[in-house]
Design a protein around this nucleic acid. Structure first.
Lengths: 243, 243
DNA sequence: TACTTAGTGTGAAGGGTATTCACATAACAA
DNA sequence: TTGTTATGTGAATACCCTTCACACTAAGTA
C-alpha cells in the first residue's frame, strides 16, 4: 500500500509466506505456553519440514523470538491507539487509553510477558532499537491524552495556579533527561510535568500488570482490576493538575 | 535458636548440607545467567555427582527453582527490613525502606527476575503460598513506614483536614478487599488510605524496576534511578497527606 | 551380634532440545 | 542451456531433564 517496490518474485513471495507461517506457529506456542514454550522442533513438526530448514529463515531460536517481540509490541501499540480513537471527552479519552493497555495485556498475557520480561537469551536484551517505534507510538498516545486532560482542566478553571500539588520535581538532571527523550520522540511540545506524568503513568500501570501476570497480586487476594482502576483515576487527577 | 527439636542424625546433617550445596550452586547460576541458566547437569558436574543423584534431593528442576524463589524472596525481605533499621526521621525512614528495595534489585538483578518474572514452568505459578511470608514481611515494613509518615504529618499540622487531595478512592469493593487483606496480614490497625498507598507504592516501584531490568527504560535514555527517586518523593508526599 | 530397612549413589537408557554441515534438488537468471 | 542461488534434507553433535533397575552404606532393630 505504501511502497510499490519491484514486483516480488514468486520465490520472494513464497519465502515471506513461509516466514509468516513460522511466526504464526511460534506466536501460537507463545500464547499457549509462554515464551519458553517456543520450540523449533514443534514448529517444523507442524510444517512437515526438517529442523535444519528453519535456519534458512531465522538465524536462531533467539532471532525468531526477537522478531516475535517486535510483532507483539506493534500489536500492543495498535491496540492502545485503537483504544484512543474516541476523543470526545478528554478525561474519558485518557481512561480509555490506559484501560486499552490493560485490556490487551489481559487478552494476550503471554504476549505481554514476551515483550516485557523476555531478556531474550538469558541476560542480554536483543532487539533494543527495533521495539522503539512501537514503544514510542504507545507512549506518544499516552502523553497526548494526558496533555489533553491538562489543557481542558487549565482552560475551564484557571484558578489555583501556584498550587503546591503540581507534581513537584525540581531535579534538574531528570529535567534534562526528559527534555532529551521528548525531542527524540517528537514530544518536545509538551511541558515536562506532562512528560513525567506520561512516563510514570506507564511505569505504574506496568507494575500492576506485571505483578498480576506473575501471580503476585492474586496471592494477596486483591483484585488487580480495582487497583488498576484506582491508579488510572489517580493519574487522571494528576493530569488535571499538570502544567 | 527457636526449635530445639530432636538432635539431627549424621545422615540428616549430611543431607541438609548437600541440599544447601545444590541450592548455592544453582543460585550462582541464576546470578550469572538468569533463571534459565540453571541446569542440573551443570550442578552435578560441579559436585562430581551423577545426574540421577540430584533427584534424591529435589523432585525436579522446577522444584529446585521454586525453592530458590522462596530463598531469594526471603533475602529480599531481609534486605528491606535491614534498610528499615534507622527510624529517626519518619520521612527519611520511608525513603530508606523504598530505596532498600531498589538497592537489592540492582545488586541482585537476576534474583529479582527469579522472584518476580519466573512463572516457573512456563505458565502456572508454583510456590504461591510459600512466598507469602516474605511478601508479607516486606509489605508490612512499607505500610508501617507510610503510616509513620502519615502520623507525623497529621500530628504537626492538623489543619486542612478535609482537603480534596486525600487519595480519593470511593470504590467500596476495593475498600473491602483492602480490609480483608489487612486482616490476613496483621495490618488491620492501619486506615484504608495507608494500606492502599502501601500497595500502590509497591506496584509503582516494581513497575520501574521491572522495566529497568528488562532494558525498556534504558532504551528511552531516561535514568531509571531518577525516575525511581521521583516516585519515592511522590509517595512520601502522598503519605504525608494520607489518613 | 546379625538382620532389616531406609537413604544415597550409579550407569544406562529414553526422549527432548538447538545447531551445523555436506549434500541434493528446485527455481530462477543469463 | 547453463550457471547460480535459494531451499530442503539427513546425519551428526552436543546439550538437556528424567526414569529405572541395581548396588552400596549408614542407621536402627531383634
Amino acid at each position: 500500500m505504501n511502497e510499490q517496490g519491484p514486483r516480488p518474485t514468486r520465490r520472494q513471495e513464497r519465502r515471506s509466506q513461509t516466514v509468516q507461517e513460522i511466526k504464526t506457529l511460534a506466536m501460537q506456542q507463545v500464547s499457549e505456553g509462554g515464551p519458553d514454550a517456543v520450540t523449533l522442533s514443534g514448529i517444523v513438526r507442524e510444517m512437515a519440514m526438517s529442523p535444519a530448514a528453519l535456519y534458512r529463515y531465522f538465524a536462531s531460536r533467539d532471532a525468531l523470538l526477537a522478531d516475535l517481540v517486535v510483532d507483539a509490541y506493534d500489536d500492543f501499540a495498535d491496540s492502545v491507539l485503537e483504544a484512543a480513537r474516541d476523543r470526545s471527552d478528554a478525561g474519558q479519552h485518557l481512561t480509555d487509553v490506559l484501560n486499552g493497555a490493560r485490556d490487551w495485556a489481559l487478552a494476550n498475557p503471554n504476549a505481554y510477558r514476551l515483550i516485557f520480561q523476555t531478556s531474550i537469551g538469558s541476560g542480554q536484551e536483543l532487539a533494543p532499537e527495533r521495539t522503539i517505534p512501537a514503544a514510542s507510538r504507545s507512549m506518544t498516545t499516552i502523553v497526548e491524552a494526558i496533555a489533553a486532560v491538562a489543557d481542558a482542566a487549565s482552560a475551564t478553571k484557571a484558578e489555583s495556579k501556584s498550587d503546591s500539588n503540581t507534581v513537584a520535581q525540581p531535579d534538574p538532571t531528570l529535567d534534562t533527561a526528559l527534555q532529551a527523550w521528548a525531542e527524540r520522540s517528537q514530544l518536545a511540545q509538551y511541558p515536562r510535568s506532562v512528560l513525567l506524568l506520561g512516563l510514570t503513568a506507564w511505569t505504574r500501570l506496568h507494575g500492576i500488570m506485571s505483578l498480576e501476570l506473575g501471580g503476585h497480586l492474586p496471592a494477596t487476594g486483591i483484585d488487580a482490576g480495582l487497583l488498576y482502576a484506582a491508579e488510572v483515576d489517580s493519574i487522571r487527577e494528576q493530569a488535571e493538575r499538570a502544567r
